[in-house]
Computed example of a mutant assay.
Amino acid sequence: MTTSMTVRTLRNEYAKMRHLRIDLVAALLLLGVAALTVLTAMNSGLIDHRADADGYGWKLLMVSLHGAVTLAAPLLLAVMASRQVEIEHSGHGWVSTSMAGATPGRLCRAKLLALGALISPMPVAWGALVLIIGRSIGVTAPAPAERLCCQLICLAIVNLAVLGAQLLASARTENQLGPLALGLAGILLSTFSQVMPLWARFLSPWTAYGLIVPADFVGPTLVDLDCHLVNLSVLAGIGGALFLAITARFDRREI
């Protein structure tokens, strides 16, 4: 795909996003995770742990953020992917764009770029919220900037992986109930992934949320956990290669 065609295809995708009101779903994801993070942290006793010297308050906020994302992101990402792809099924978009030079696989890659650019900055906003809430209620321990940055990067990677999987599922079937059901199943997989064996968390984008749990209880103590950034980066590379390979097959056959 030439640069001019890539730019034109992306512009078309952004135009579709405005028409489909994808921005509303994205706003729901952004604000929903923010609200769930605050509510979960407050209900878990954040106020009572403001002065803990071990940074318990920050750990609680980060765990709450992780839990909020696992509850909201799988389904809302599925909705975003489904709406962005459904228009191609209903309006014979695959055929018309192919005639214009953008084959189905290339179109799927453009959709991932367009939607990915929309969701990738969200973890930065969530991280800022964690810092603002922590400071505003008076958490006295130093903010764990390095661990928080690691968590935000990992959340962005896993969200992109889930989005890519949902786009492929939506592109393969005209009936979008299946991909949306996959999003619902993704909530269960992501929620329970942290109690799965470590090897099982590598099996899908949804279970990969279990690799980035920031902390867990060991007795009464909330202990920091490894975010597996290196392993997750390797998985992201493998997932990206699979996405390119599958969409390349779309280029050679009609969806």
Score class of each variant (00 low, 15 high):
K16E: 07
T2M: 07
M17K: 01
R8Y: 02
V7S: 13
L39C: 01
V33Y: 03
A51Y: 07
A53K: 12
S44Y: 02
R11Y: 02
T2L: 09
D23L: 09
E13N: 13
T3F: 11
L36V: 12
H49S: 11
H49M: 07
L20R: 08
S44F: 08
S4C: 00
L36M: 12
G45W: 10
A15C: 02
A53D: 10
L28R: 09
M5K: 06
A41S: 13
L36Q: 10
L29G: 11
N12F: 04
L36I: 06
G32I: 09
A41T: 06
L20K: 03
L29H: 04
A15K: 06
L46C: 11
R8L: 11
L24E: 07
T9D: 02
H49Q: 14
L24G: 05
L39A: 12
L28W: 07
H49F: 10
Y14K: 01
D23G: 15
A26W: 03
K16P: 00
H19L: 13
S4N: 04
L39Y: 01
D23I: 10
S44Q: 15
A27M: 10
A26H: 07
L29C: 09
L46F: 10
H19Q: 13
R50T: 15
L29T: 13
A15F: 02
T37C: 11
L29N: 04
R50L: 11
A35L: 09
T40D: 13
T6L: 14
T9N: 02
L31H: 01
T40M: 11
I22M: 07
H19A: 15
T3V: 14
H19W: 05
L10H: 04
R50I: 12
A15I: 02
V25I: 15
T2R: 14
V7A: 15
R11D: 07
D48K: 09
K16D: 08
M5F: 00
L31A: 11
A53M: 12
S4L: 11
H19T: 14
R18W: 08
D48L: 15
A26Y: 03
V33L: 03
L39D: 05
L28Q: 10
M5Q: 14
S4E: 11
L30P: 01
D23S: 15
R11V: 04
R21D: 13
V33Q: 02
L10F: 02
S44H: 13
A41E: 06
A51C: 01
V25Q: 03
L46G: 14
A41P: 08
A26G: 05
R11M: 06
A27R: 09
Y14L: 12
A26L: 13
N43S: 13
K16I: 09
D52E: 14
D52T: 08
A35T: 07
